[in-house]
């Protein structure tokens, strides 16, 4: 039986990166989720770019999970046949991860945004101070972290 492109990709990932992948599965049509160990995302993204033409990055999502920050790289091949989500975690007290802008130049803005709003440091990406926050924003305050509250107090959802 001929495997679909997505199934072939999942097979290849499990075969070549068996020690680095925690989970890889096809969730529904056009959605593939892969969970990788810390530090493994660069090799996997480079492999996928060369082998499967996955060069389009949709965005990078950062999720504050309490003790860790999870980064999800949303990638798609050139013919946009499916959407691939690569998840990896960094600890919140030392949020450093290697950059991918040499592999996928389109990720520059997304890494800067995650750095500005969540405080994740991308090693190898020299970025100027603030991307979208104003110049007089205090140091060390990352608005999208769940424990950050605005100074004026938290409004309740008025119904």
């Amino acid at each position: 039986m001929e495997l679909s492109r997505e199934a072939q990709m999942v097979d290849d990932l499990k075969r070549y990166f068996a020690d680095k992948i925690i989970k890889a599965e096809i969730v529904r049509a056009r959605r593939v989720n892969v969970e990788v160990k810390a530090g493994a995302h660069r090799d996997i993204i480079k492999f996928l770019k060369n082998r499967y033409d996955i060069r389009h990055i949709v965005t990078i999502t950062g999720v504050d999970l309490g003790k860790d920050i999870e980064l999800i790289y949303h990638l798609s091949p050139d013919n946009r046949q499916w959407l691939l989500n690569i998840r990896t975690k960094v600890p919140k007290d030392n949020p450093k991860i290697e950059t991918i802008i040499d592999i996928l130049p389109g990720a520059i803005f997304y890494e800067r945004e995650v750095n500005d709003l969540l405080g994740v440091i991308f090693e190898g990406h020299e970025m100027p101070k603030h991307f979208i926050l104003p110049d007089d924003w205090p140091e060390g305050e990352y608005p999208l972290r769940k424990d950050w509250k605005p100074k004026e107090g938290v409004p309740s959802a008025r119904v």
Binding site: L133, P134, P143, P150, V154, P155
Partner: peptide, 11 residues
């Protein structure tokens, strides 16, 4: 006039 729909948004 007053901030509109963005009540509670920082910035």
């Amino acid at each position: 006039c007053s901030g509109g729909v963005y009540w509670g948004c920082y910035n």
